[in-house]
C-alpha cells in the first residue's frame, strides 16, 4: 500500500517528505498504531518513491515536522558507543543535538566533539543519567526533546516515530517495552514497580511503560509542567505528568532491555540500579499522595461498606 503510494508520489515529483505527509493524512492508519507502524510505512513509501522518481531520498523518511526537535544524549564513559549513537541522530532533522558528558575519564568528550553541530556539555563529576537529562532539557531550545543514552545506538527509523508523536501532540512519548517483557511471574521488581505506579495512578493502559526507560520524548509544555528538577527522578516526573493530565502514550518499541542486561550494575537480583529505581517509585507515590491523599483514588468507600465487603473477601 505504502509502496504504491510512494511510487505514485514519485511519478508526480516534488518533495518526498511533503508527499509522505500528505499521504499519511489521507491514509486511514489506525490512530492507536500510527507511531508504531510509522517507521515501516515510511520506509516502504520511500522505496516506492525512489523507484519511480529515480532520485536519492535519505532514510528515514519523515513527514514534515511543525515544531523543532531537540535531542539530549547523556553519556558517562561511553566513548565506544557514542559515535554510533550520534551517527544515527545525524540522520534525523534535529534543531540541536546536546550531549551531556559527565564523569567521563575516557574519550567521550572528544568523541562527541568530533561531530559537527553537536553541542557538548562537559561536567567533570558523575551526575547520574537522570540529572544529566535534566540539565540537557534545561539547555535545550526545541519545541520537543528526545532523550536517549550514550551507551546504546538506536536506529534513526525507530527514533523518527518519537519525533512524529511529539510533533503531533503527544506530550510524553514513551518507549513501549511491553512486547519485550515475559509473564508477570518472571518479571523483575523494577517492571512491577513501574506497572504498580501507573495502575495506582489510574493509567493501566501504560502498563510497565515509564520515563525511567529511554528513548522517550517530551514536549516543552510537559517539561515545564513537570519541572527540570523533577526530571531527575523519572517516576516522579511520570506521576506529575499523569496528574497534570498530559497526553502520555507508548509510541514505539525499542529494545533497551538486552543492552541493560549487559550492564554489570544493572543485572540480576538486588542490583544497585534496581534499588535506585525502586526508591524512585516510592518517592513518586509519595508525591502523588501529597495532592490526592494517602489512598489516592482508592479510598472513596465508606467505612460501613468496607466492613461488609471485607467479609465478602
Amino acid at each position: 500500500m505504502a509502496v504504491t503510494a510512494g511510487r505514485l508520489a514519485g511519478r508526480r515529483g516534488g518533495a518526498a517528505a511533503a508527499a509522505f505527509g500528505q499521504w499519511l493524512a489521507s491514509a486511514a492508519l489506525p490512530a492507536g498504531q500510527l507511531f508504531r507502524l510509522l517507521p515501516g510505512v515510511a520506509e516502504s513509501f520511500r522505496r516506492g518513491f525512489v523507484r519511480s522518481s529515480g532520485s536519492q531520498i535519505p532514510s528515514p523518511l519523515m513527514p514534515p515536522l511543525a515544531g523543532r526537535p531537540s535531542v539530549v544524549v547523556s553519556a558517562c564513559n561511553e566513548a565506544g558507543s557514542l559515535p554510533a549513537v550520534l551517527r544515527e541522530l545525524k540522520r534525523l532533522p534535529f534543531h540541536e543535538i546536546i550531549v551531556v558528558v559527565n564523569g567521563s575519564q575516557d574519550g567521550s568528550f572528544a568523541a562527541a566533539r568530533s561531530f559537527d553541530g553537536v553541542i557538548v556539555v562537559h561536567i567533570a563529576e558523575r551526575l547520574g543519567h537522570d540529572v544529566a537529562r535534566g540539565i540537557g532539557a534545561k539547555l535545550s531550545t526545541g519545541d520537543f526533546v528526545l532523550f536517549i543514552d550514550g551507551d546504546m545506538p538506536v536506529s534513526a527509523h525507530l527514533l523518527s516515530a518519537f519525533l512524529v508523536a511529539a510533533d503531533r501532540g503527544v506530550d510524553v512519548a514513551l518507549n513501549d517495552i511491553m512486547p519485550l517483557l515475559p509473564a508477570f511471574d518472571r518479571q523483575d521488581e523494577v517492571t512491577r514497580c513501574k506497572t504498580f505506579l501507573n495502575r495506582m495512578m489510574g493509567r493501566d493502559d501504560l502498563e510497565a511503560n515509564s520515563m525511567t526507560a529511554v528513548p522517550h520524548a517530551l514536549s516543552r509544555r510537559a517539561i515545564e509542567m513537570i519541572g527540570y528538577d523533577n526530571l531527575a527522578v523519572p517516576p516522579k516526573a511520570q506521576t506529575l505528568a499523569i496528574r497534570a493530565g498530559l497526553r502520555i502514550q507508548a509510541v514505539q518499541t525499542v529494545d533497551v532491555l538486552s543492552v541493560n542486561r549487559r550492564r554489570t550494575l544493572n543485572r540480576g537480583r538486588d542490583n544497585p540500579v534496581a534499588r535506585l529505581i525502586i526508591g524512585d517509585h516510592i518517592e513518586a507515590l509519595m508525591e502523588a499522595m501529597k495532592s490526592a491523599g494517602t489512598r489516592l483514588q482508592w479510598g472513596q468507600v465508606s467505612r460501613d461498606e468496607f466492613a461488609i465487603r471485607r467479609n465478602g473477601i
Partner: peptide
Amino acid sequence: HDGERRRSMV
C-alpha cells in the same frame, strides 16, 4: 539509595 545523582545540579 539515590545512586550517584547530583540533584542540586539541576
